[in-house]
Design a protein around this nucleic acid. Structure first.
Length: 480
RNA sequence: CGGGGCGUGGCGCAGCCCGGUAGCGCGCACGGUUUGGGUCCGUGAGGUCCCCGGUUCGAAUCCGGGCGCCCCGACCA
């Protein structure tokens, strides 16, 4: 008997998270500080997210392209706020080919600058607009404090960059892509998110407006899962992205950018995971069903494996991702725990008794123990599995949403806000404060404005900090 | 960059105070046993004890210096 249980979430969430990431085989430590090796199982989760998002990006009229990893240092400096925002975390190449470079090359932290430069060439006339480009890439930001998936020195993402003829068109695009992100989060990752606008302080470096989808993790901390920026004409002016109007006048374009990262994998872990390990939403699970064969003697083995193989084929043919656990050395009990750790939504058990009765046991990951098990006729397995998967997908979302809603509270005074945040919950409060006020709240409580949610109560209220008349409520929370 | 902690087989650790040339658990390999909720037994492989220097007949252990990592904050997707 070995000691194999993970640290409980309630005991030390951060330790729980780290253990799950490594033990569920999502990632491995890397030789470089702050980076991780994304292992096949973790990468497949990312590929699932990526596939769903890429499809939606294309459906909304964007095309994929690829821009260079290296950016001339001077580019970064062209947009004032952008430099200021990113300088501290840049990785810079000063030598190449055995010689010092004339101009250092920045390893991209994001690509507004290179892409902006390209756009200025590509766009001549209003007929070239809108220009809708996306790229899948890796970027590097030398963060001081890193965590697997949530914040790594190098991460994978998608960054969309678009140029438009008017502010309103750009704004529409920005909001459309936020909807796309929310759709991915909710319908693929089963993560309920709150759409909203970032405060000035939390805005992207160089953006006019930043929109976000915010999710609540199992420790009640907030995680920004994706952002969409209306860049106004800031980058167009810095990179001279202009177009000729129908009336033959020169105008600056209105640009947007939006990104979603491998952080989403961390969000899946922290939104759905429990003390037994991962709980993967069926739509993103590399294996949706794992079959664990059970047998004692060779004679049983043959019969059981025959049934297993039949089942595997039937499930695969119906489009379900199946894995058969053929490992010889491990007991069924060990395998049950192992696959629970790895979050496979449905486990199918087939033993001699099932072969005899033409049965199979289906166990759902989101309902542990006997309650989550059911006997199904082998002939009905495909339908049963399909129903179960759909149900689990829904249940995970409902579960996460109920959890989140139970931990957001209205706070109508500063004292209340502090109490709510101190209890770990999110506070919803009227806000009309300045940057300094926002900073003060952060210093005092550790909470930041996650966003001004699109869903507003309406009317006006009294700012929780300044007492001034406020038109919007903000969500305050401790964040990753 | 401030505050804590730690560097010993793949992983987690003990040994260090009181120097004598390395041990435990897990994992791994092989054999057997077991298999419907983390089987058990046996055999075996695997180590520059972070690095450099010093003290000593002898250093994982003592002394000096370096390096690295982790955790907690500030910066951030």
């Amino acid at each position: 008997m070995s000691e194999q249980a993970v640290t409980a979430q309630s005991e030390d969430f951060s330790r729980w998270y780290n253990e799950i990431v490594y033990r569920a085989d999502l990632a491995a430590p890397s030789p470089v500080r702050g980076c991780i090796i994304i292992k096949p199982y973790g990468y497949e989760v990312w590929e699932g997210i990526k596939a769903g998002l890429d499809r939606r990006i294309k459906e909304t009229g964007h095309q994929n392209a690829y821009f260079p990893l290296f950016i001339p240092e001077s580019y970064i400096k062209r947009e004032a706020e952008h430099v200021e925002g990113f300088s501290p975390e840049l990785a810079v190449v000063t030598h190449a080919g055995g010689r010092e470079l004339e101009e250092p090359l920045v390893v991209r932290p994001t690509s507004e600058t290179v892409i902006g430069e390209a756009f200025s060439d590509w766009i001549q006339s209003y007929r070239d607009l809108p220009l809708l480009i996306n790229q899948w890439a890796n970027v590097v930001r030398w963060e001081l404090r890193t965590r697997p998936f949530l914040r790594t020195a190098e991460f994978l993402w998608q960054e969309g960059h678009t140029a438009h003829a008017s502010h309103d068109e750009a704004e529409e695009e920005t909001l459309q892509m936020l909807d796309v992100y929310a759709d991915c989060a909710v319908n693929d990752a089963a993560i309920p998110v709150i759409k909203g606008e970032k405060s000035r302080m939390e805005r992207f470096a160089g953006a006019m407006r930043t929109y976000t989808i915010e999710a609540m993790m199992r420790d009640k901390r907030a995680l920004q899962c994706g952002t969409s920026h209306n860049l106004g004409q800031n980058f167009a002016k810095a990179f001279d992205i202009r177009y000729l109007t129908e009336a033959n006048t020169q105008e600056f374009c209105w640009t947007t950018s939006w990104g979603l990262t491998t952080r989403m994998v961390g969000a899946v872990v922290m939104t759905h995971g429990d003390d037994k390990g991962l709980r993967l939403p069926p739509k993103l699970a590399p294996y949706q069903v794992v079959i664990v064969p059970i047998y004692k003697r060779d004679a049983q083995r043959v019969a059981v494996m025959e049934a297993v193989e039949r089942l595997r084929e039937a499930l695969t043919e119906s489009g379900i991702r199946v894995h058969v656990d053929r490992r010889e050395g491990q007991s069924p009990g060990f395998k049950f725990n192992d696959w629970e750790m790895r979050g496979v939504p449905v486990r199918a058990e087939i033993g001699p008794k099932d072969v005899e009765n033409n049965n199979v046991v289906l166990a759902r990951r989101d309902v542990l123990g006997r309650q989550g098990k059911q006997f199904v006729s082998q002939d009905g397995v495909v339908d049963a599995a399909r129903d179960l998967l759909a149900d689990i997908q829904r249940a995970l979302l409902d579960d996460a949403q109920a959890f989140r809603d139970a931990h957001i509270q209205d706070a109508s005074s500063y004292d209340e806000l502090r109490a709510v945040v101190e209890a770990g919950d999110w506070a919803r409060s009227w806000w009309a404060g300045s940057d300094a006020d926002e900073q003060a709240v952060k210093d005092k409580t550790g909470a930041t404005i996650r966003c001004f949610p699109f869903e507003q109560p309406g009317g006006r209220g009294e700012c929780v900090k300044t007492g001034k008349a406020a038109e919007k409520v903000a969500l305050f929370a401790k964040a990753y």
